[in-house]
Nucleic acid binder design. Structure first.
Length: 487
RNA sequence: CGGGGCGUAGCGCAGCCCGGUAGCGCGCCUGCUUUGGGAGCAGGAGGUCCUCGGUUCAAAUCCGAGCGCCCCGACCA
């Protein structure tokens, strides 16, 4: 750590900065088991706000929550060939229970496709039972070789949506719809603007027909796969006999989709908005949106300012603002400022005797954004009415800044392989270039530069001019892709 | 699994080379003074020095083995 109070600057060592911020903002801590972590109240509060927003969106699109068990028979996982191949190395297996060795080992779910579609098969008889739209909030375990707080841990929390449909078109529409929900959430709540697109075959989910993803750019210009949505085709339906009677009286396998986002998003939030002073939490996700800090010297002043703070807090709460009064008498105001800035509370409201006398307060934003001053004196009488709107403006300014940063580090129309290497091995960023579609070219870039195809972007994200040549082999480009190093 | 680093008070570390009463900073507790950007002073609590074995009159320190964690690389949300 640079010194007792500050963080290692991002420019010196981004990854050291990230670890320090997560630990010292009290988002999470290491648990005694390698690679697993404890999510602390501040981090969990952010996750809860993420859950709340997403859960509502899932319900608004017709999904219902359910819960499927943690333990899955080993044989289930083995049923889909690609699927088991994809997950086998990282699955934790329970071999003993009740003091005896089990006849069939149980796997701790790395994901729940197998158990869920096995159950769907029991519940679906007719096309009238479709679509079946289910979501679950759960923990999963993947024994990763290398772990990082929030970004990759042995156990993590997520939601996994699982649906069954009558035909491919319906399943595809669902897959794309839910990717869109993720985008809405990431932009609107996290102020983290993703690029949307399809994954190449080598990057797609084990067992899926097609995988789509939201790729966000972190401040070190690396990509973070922030959410995925899969069209599973009939692969799982065939293995688990998820069949239904069609309207025409025939029989068909259902078409499935699955989609998920995880606590990894919390890491993405940190790496999108955090600065050398700590975390920055967008207002819509902040467990505390405004912290009130009374400032006083004497007991009389203390009574005056603390009462004033609680009074204002009550009004703000009624106006729908999540507030906290930090009336701890053991810390000086400055210490409180640093603590709440480290944790990323969007705005602080200072209330001192001079403010009370003027019937005003001092707003201090977490950072200067969108040309607004950080400090802003405001009459008490207007705080309650204007703060919700100002918080929304702050939220929007965070998104604008993130979009600007992403664009500034995106390189379109790259046609020279040397240029790709220069960018990827230098400052990093998203490189838009042509690809012939061959796995060999994809592999070569990965071997040479550690960059991978993050996605084949949707039309909205593509460059005005379609690339003509494959960046790697010079052959005819079948599509435009985004290259970047990724988490 | 390869490379690197580290294990000493709650946290961060020094001490180890050259064996001899276990220390510093921060935090914590008590009191007084403080409080508009990380408070000051005084007093105080807090330790299987990662584990096991060896050498020695004597081991945090030397030797051997083991364990754990973090960071960097190969797999992945």
């Amino acid at each position: 750590m640079a010194d007792e109070q500050g963080f290692t600057p991002r420019s010196t060592d981004f990854s050291a900065w990230y670890n320090e911020v997560v630990l010292r903002a009290e988002l999470a801590d290491y648990s005694p088991v390698r690679g697993s972590m404890v999510i602390r109240p501040w981090g969990y509060g952010i996750w809860e706000n993420m859950q709340r927003a997403l859960d509502q969106m899932f319900k608004d699109t017709g999904h219902q929550n359910a819960y499927f068990p943690l333990l899955i028979p080993m044989s289930f996982l083995e049923r889909e060939k690609e699927h088991v191949k994809g997950f086998a190395p990282e699955v934790a297996v329970v071999t003993h229970a009740g003091g005896k060795e089990l006849e069939e080992p149980l796997v701790i779910r790395p994901t729940s496709e197998t158990i869920i579609y096995a159950m769907f098969a029991k519940w679906v008889r007719s096309y009238r039972d479709l679509p079946l739209l289910i979501n679950q909030w759960a923990n999963v375990v993947r024994w990763e070789m290398r772990t990082r707080l929030f970004l990759r841990t042995a156990e993590f929390l997520w939601q996994e949506g699982h649906t069954a449909h009558v035909d491919e078109a319906d399943a595809e529409a669902e897959t794309i719809r839910m990717l869109g929900v993720y985008r809405t959430f990431m932009e609107g709540w996290m102020a983290m603007p993703p690029v949307l697109g399809r994954k190449s075959d080598s990057e797609k989910f084990a067992g899926a027909l097609r995988t789509y993803a939201c790729e966000a750019m972190m401040q070190d210009n690396k990509a973070l796969q922030a959410g995925t949505s899969h069209n599973l085709g009939q692969n799982f339906a065939r293995q688990f006999e998820l069949k239904f009677q069609t309207a025409a009286g025939g029989e068909d396998f259902a078409w499935n989709t699955s989609w998920g986002v995880s606590t990894r998003l919390v890491g993405g939030l940190v790496m999108t908005h955090g600065d050398d002073g700590g975390v920055v939490v967008p207002p819509r996700l902040a467990p505390i949106q405004a912290v009130l800090v009374p400032i006083y010297r004497t007991d009389e002043e203390r009574t005056l300012t603390v009462e004033k703070a609680h009074g204002l807090a009550g009004e703000l709460k009624r106006a729908g603002v999540r507030v906290h009064v930090d009336d701890r008498d053991t810390l000086k105001p400055g210490a409180k400022y640093f603590e709440w800035e480290r944790k990323g509370v969007p705005v602080r409201i200072e209330i001192g005797p001079r403010d009370v006398a003027k019937q005003s307060v001092m707003l201090v934003w977490r950072l200067e954004l969108g040309g607004r001053p950080r400090k802003e004196p405001m009459l008490e009488s207007v705080v309650v009415d204007s703060l919700p709107e100002r918080l929304e403006q702050f939220q929007q300014a965070l998104l604008d800044a993130a979009i600007a940063r992403r664009e500034a580090n995106s390189y379109r129309g790259v046609t020279e392989y040397a240029r790709l290497r220069e960018i990827v091995e230098g400052a990093g960023g998203f490189v838009y270039a042509g690809w012939c579609g061959s796995p060999e070219c994809e592999e070569k870039v990965k071997d040479d530069t550690k960059a991978t195809i993050r996605c084949i972007p949707f039309e909205e994200f593509r460059s005005p001019e379609a690339p003509a040549r494959c960046l790697v082999c010079g052959g005819e480009a079948k599509m435009e892709v985004i290259w970047a190093r990724a988490y």
